[in-house]
Design a protein around this nucleic acid. Structure first.
Lengths: 234, 234
DNA sequence: GAATTCGGTGAACGATGTTCACTATTTGAA
DNA sequence: TTCAAATAGTGAACATCGTTCACCGAATTC
């Protein structure tokens, strides 16, 4: 959000951008593989063959650099969901697509997703409700949220979803459930496979589908479709 | 799991335990307030008026100490849910109790809960399915999970829940959804209050109830109860 | 051509987790 | 009681981390 608005084409500026993206690329590479623990300024500097202090000519702090990584990941995540939401598929399939795309994108880069939702450090910035929503709506988190709200509304208009739900609150519930399965898959090693009877085992993709089916069902106007909807379809 | 099984009553051992719990208490105090960032060995040592090296006579590493904090928190969380599951309440109320107790306990100690589910560091230990489940069942995570499985089974036997669900898979979905709302409440500042129309605002407790209602509904055999079930009951 | 900005560096600071040689005290047995 | 062994505790150090600062050389600007 600095000078990206109008990309100056001075040769110096071009060189600067090249080094900057080299740093970001190295950071992305390391962070994807080893997460925040493996990503140190010194290692980054070594990777691009500069001195550690050089990084600070391009980023104010390590946190600033990390924020940029998370930001661009979040944009990928969001655009993936948005693309799924704009498909021509029938409603339920479209909702399921959004859901599974979200979760799959999240667990494809576990460190990014987990880090993007880890900001417990600053519980100080809690402005009034107005400012809060305004900021939230503008953020990419807010945009993703509005996509989900739109889906809920559509389902209600078509008559598939129960119309008595507040679409905003329902969207929050949906988001929370998506968030939960994504993080559980990330943090619990071999999560969905763990079962007492291996013959009833379930792989990750099947479990995501099951979870999506459950969430869809929770919003449906009664009567609902049978429970096994969307399960055994490897 | 060391010598706790038979608590030796030697005076030396007693002194040792006193210092040990003093360390743990200080750690608990600091960690609750400031999380992992605020908790340093040196600060801990200063707090109990010892030298930093002294800590290592009682704990092998900082991680070991932290694990003990998380462990005892997890036991509190678990026993809270178990207690709620053993209530004499009618089925739906009991399920809701378990759900809200879980989430409330989680967000009462955000740093503990978040840290307890952050072990992406070691994706190496993925043994075969048998060992995996055996270990999982014995852990307190596994015990909590079995409590949820039991609830699902009971609902199916009573006829409230759809019997075609695999209770293990359904329990995983439920757990994921609980996990999601807990972490979203922890990480997103002022999460459920954010709404475009403040008159439809919702507080945390109401939102937890709404979410619980949605999850309950998702498992119900059709036809389901009306959507607003359990909402406006401040 | 002179002045000023800017990319880049090496050395350092403060803080972190952890180790290690070293006391001093306590414990257990002869 | 005496002596050896174990143990609690310490201070100094090591390696690593993020970050800063004075400094230098090259590019840009006037």
């Amino acid at each position: 959000m600095d000078i990206d608005t109008l990309p100056e084409e001075s040769p110096a500026e071009r060189r600067r951008q090249r080094v900057r993206t080299a740093i970001l690329d190295a950071a992305e590479r390391v962070f994807s593989k080893e997460g925040e623990t493996g990503l140190s300024i010194r290692r980054l500097a070594e990777e691009i063959d500069y001195s550690p202090a050089a990084i600070y000519k391009y980023f104010g702090s390590k946190e600033e650099l990390l924020d940029e990584l998370k930001e661009s990941f979040f944009e990928r995540l969001m655009s993936t969901v948005d693309r799924a939401a704009l498909t021509e598929l029938p409603f339920e399939a479209r909702v399921r697509q959004c859901f599974s795309k979200y979760v799959e994108t999240a667990i494809a880069r576990p460190h990014h997703y987990a880090a993007a939702f880890a900001s417990t450090g600053n519980p100080d910035n809690l402005p009034e409700a107005d400012t809060c929503w305004a900021d939230f709506e503008k953020s990419n988190k807010g945009q993703a949220f509005m996509t989900v709200v739109g889906l809920v509304r559509e389902g209600q208009e078509v008559g598939i979803f129960d119309a008595s739900f507040d679409p905003f609150i329902a969207a929050k519930s949906l988001w929370a459930s998506m968030h939960g399965i994504a993080l559980l898959l990330i943090h619990l090693p071999g999560f969905p496979a763990i079962l007492p009877t291996p013959d009833r085992g379930i792989n990750t993709a099947e479990f995501i589908q099951f979870h999506a089916g459950l969430l869809f069902r929770s919003l449906c106007a009664s009567p609902v479709s049978p429970a096994c909807s969307g399960h055994d379809q490897s």
